[in-house]
Design a protein around this nucleic acid. Structure first.
Length: 510
RNA sequence: UCCCCGAUAGCUCAAUGGUAGAGCGAGCGGCUGUUAACCGCUAGGUUCUAGGUUCGAGUCCUAGUCGGGGAGCCA
């Protein structure tokens, strides 16, 4: 018999005999017709299960079929028939079919995934099993389709996919705490004393003992030796980290290939314990040459709308589930985002709106707001959810709250009382900031001034500065947090539930 | 990291400082082309950990661990 997916079986012509391989979600028994069991079977290929009607005349009916419990693995062969409700089901009886048990579930009374609602908190502790549930199956399929959509969007527009490195030798990416990457033995690491390399007794690094060493005084226990490790003896010969952003690297490719993007994992060692932060997450960062902030905002808007449209087209079954069970009104919210043009708003005007709202009593905020300060999430929510009721692209932020690489605007842009940079944040209802981007500073003198102003180690930026010395061009880009996009598209409330195996402070199981 | 809340059966939760319970799930039986099925019976517990108060602690106190919500940082 041909083995077909549940997805295909639900659309197959009645009368065909097929084999389905999957896992039991529920079993219900009936004494009708001399006994039969209804098995809801899923194989992950689509949201729905298909019902197997296992007849009592199957040779293993009493011994096996009637004992199946949730998530037993089976191979079922039978004929496709229409059930009274009009959908397809598979009738398996002794004449034309069988139900083979491939894998039993031990101790079904203790098997943690049951045919009943479970809290996400509980399922989070069972990341290896939770994908068998409706919700996490749907999340997994949406996540896949979203990844494909992202690549398709950029590919169709002539962008090249650039694999920026995951291990980085520059500690100047400037986006938060980094994870160290090292092959040094933490206990007996070679040390620097007074700036000179010393080595632990008997310890070799990369097969060669560190030369030119004094040993620490023998009376100093190793664990009390607080001198800094000698990273010249480390794997890369310098201190290295996991990347926090591919942006600086991808900029180099934009300045040769014109339109590029990177899509990969990024890492932040911040001690953030929230429903919106992960230590390991995925980020999409396009970069376009010969482009300004307006071009950047346009790309961001097209991008978000493309992703929504693709989900509605290609994952309709899963999206319907999210709309019904996870966030009521999700589809309406997404369609509204799709239909309206994004509202472009200078930061300076945004502050005015917020101040007016406070003055007129329309809004009350916990944190004070004034020009020059970054917006709190309550302020962002007010703008997108109360005032405009649509996505807002906030542009031209005060220079002092933004990164060194952002292009400085002409004085007086938007009537701002201070210096601004060509930065933009895309704020969406429910989620808040989903995209952060900017036009990059392409003028070497301005860039250097900024690096110095912020006290950054200018030597480290030698290759980044080279881009401004050799054929510099205006360019711009943004970053989209992949998991934030997942939350926006599914209505899932916790970022740990939209990635298969979440990594967060004190959490690295599986 | 800060503030608040929580941890009791496989799961979701009850239990005035005084005999640890229910619903769901599981097992057995009944009924039924069932589909959040229904009815009956049964089993299932080191009450997160370590201390302390008390004649007596799931309950009160201290510390810790883990989880949740909010904030900060940000994507």
């Amino acid at each position: 018999m041909p083995w077909i997916s549940v997805k295909d079986a639900l659309k197959a012509a009645p009368g065909t005999i097929v084999t389905i391989k999957g896992w039991v979600r529920t079993r219900r028994d009936s004494k009708a017709d001399g006994g039969l069991s209804f098995l809801a079977l899923h194989d992950g290929t689509c949201f729905d299960t298909i019902q197997i009607v296992a007849k009592g005349n199957l040779s293993n009916y009493a011994s096996e079929v009637a004992k199946l419990t949730t998530h037993c693995a089976v191979e079922a062969t039978g004929v496709i028939v229409q059930n009274p409700k009009g959908g397809n089901e598979i009738s398996a009886d002794a004449s034309s079919g069988e139900v083979k048990v491939v894998g039993w579930v031990d101790n079904p009374d203790h098997y943690p995934i049951q045919p009943k609602p479970h809290s996400f908190e509980f399922l989070r502790e069972l990341a290896h099993l939770r994908v068998r549930t409706n919700t996490f199956g749907a999340v997994a399929r949406v996540r896949h389709t979203l990844s494909m959509a992202i690549h398709r969007f950029y590919d169709q527009r002539g962008f090249f996919y650039v694999h920026t490195p995951i291990i980085t030798g520059s500690d100047c990416e400037g986006a938060g705490q980094m994870f160290k990457v090292s092959t040094l033995d933490f206990v007996n690491a070679p040390r620097l004393q007074n700036g000179e390399a010393v080595h632990a007794q008997g310890v070799k690094v990369s097969g060669a003992e560190v030369s030119s060493g004094k040993t620490p005084a023998p009376s100093t226990p190793r664990h009390l030796d607080t001198s800094s490790p000698d990273f010249s003896a480390d794997f890369f010969g310098k201190q290295t980290h996991l990347t926090v952003s591919g942006q600086l690297n991808v900029e180099t490719y934009a300045c040769a290939l014109s339109r590029v993007y990177t899509f990969g994992p990024t890492f932040r060692a911040e001690n953030s314990n929230t429903s919106r932060h992960l230590a390991e997450f995925w980020m999409i960062e396009p970069e376009i040459a010969f482009a300004n902030l307006q071009d950047d905002a346009k790309l961001a808007e097209d991008f978000i709308k493309f992703l929504i449209q693709t989900m509605l087209n290609e994952r309709a079954d899963d999206m319907k589930f999210f709309d019904e069970r996870i966030e009521k009104g999700l589809l309406t919210r997404l369609k509204e985002v799709l239909d309206k043009p994004f509202r472009h708003l200078p930061y300076t005007d945004g502050i005015k709106i917020l101040k007016d709202a406070i003055a007129s009593g329309k809004a009350k905020f916990e944190y004070p707001i004034e020009w020059g300060k970054d917006l709190q999430s309550e302020h962002e929510r007010y703008l997108t959810e109360q005032h405009f009721k649509q996505p807002v692209v906030l542009m031209n932020y005060p220079k002092q709250i933004k990164a060194f690489y952002m292009r400085e605007n002409d004085p007086g842009t938007d009537g701002a009382p201070g210096a601004t940079v060509a930065a933009m944040d895309v704020l969406v209802p429910q989620v808040g900031e989903i995209i952060g981007g900017s036009q990059r500073e392409e003028r070497l003198d301005k860039l250097d001034a900024r690096i110095e102003e912020m006290g950054l180690p200018i030597k480290e930026y030698w290759w980044y500065r080279d881009l401004r010395r050799y054929g510099t061009v205006p360019h711009a880009g943004f970053g989209l947090g992949f998991e934030r996009a997942m939350m926006f598209l599914t209505g899932m409330q916790n970022v740990r539930d939209v990635i298969p195996f979440p990594r967060a402070p004190k959490q690295c199981e599986f």
